[in-house]
């Protein structure tokens, strides 16, 4: 195996993630797309570390931090979704239009 297949998979994950964020109307769907982006980063870091800088575990160490922070963000995001759902009984972005942005 070489580095390139990993990079191609992660680039695809990134593109799917961005596409999902831009087209999904359900907030949960957007959250899942963002998780895809975070995971493409993880694949990148681990692959770079393994194939190019095998002497240390620096890239893999960063991955652990990324996973932990992504989990913390997901917790906050889901609780915000719950707060909105209690108010308007909907998780669709087109129903969030009180503030004209």
């Amino acid at each position: 195996m070489t580095l390139h297949p990993y990079l191609i998979v992660s680039a695809f994950l990134l593109i799917i993630g961005i596409y999902g964020v831009l087209t999904r109307r359900n907030i949960i769907g957007i959250l899942m797309s963002i998780e895809l982006i975070f995971n493409s980063v993880n694949i990148n870091l681990v692959a770079f570390n393994h194939f190019l800088y095998g002497g240390n575990l620096y890239g893999q160490g960063i991955t652990i931090f990324v996973i932990a922070v992504a989990a913390a963000e997901a917790v906050v995001g889901l609780s915000l979704v719950l707060a909105i759902y209690r108010n308007i009984k909907s998780v669709y972005v087109e129903n969030m239009n009180i503030l004209k942005g």
Binding site: I18, I27, G77, L80, A83, I84
Partner: peptide, 17 residues
């Protein structure tokens, strides 16, 4: 809540990028 969720979505997306 609405302001927070907008902030959150843009914020996490940009963190991912």
């Amino acid at each position: 809540s609405e302001g927070a969720i907008k902030f959150f979505l843009v914020g996490t997306l940009s963190t991912g990028l």
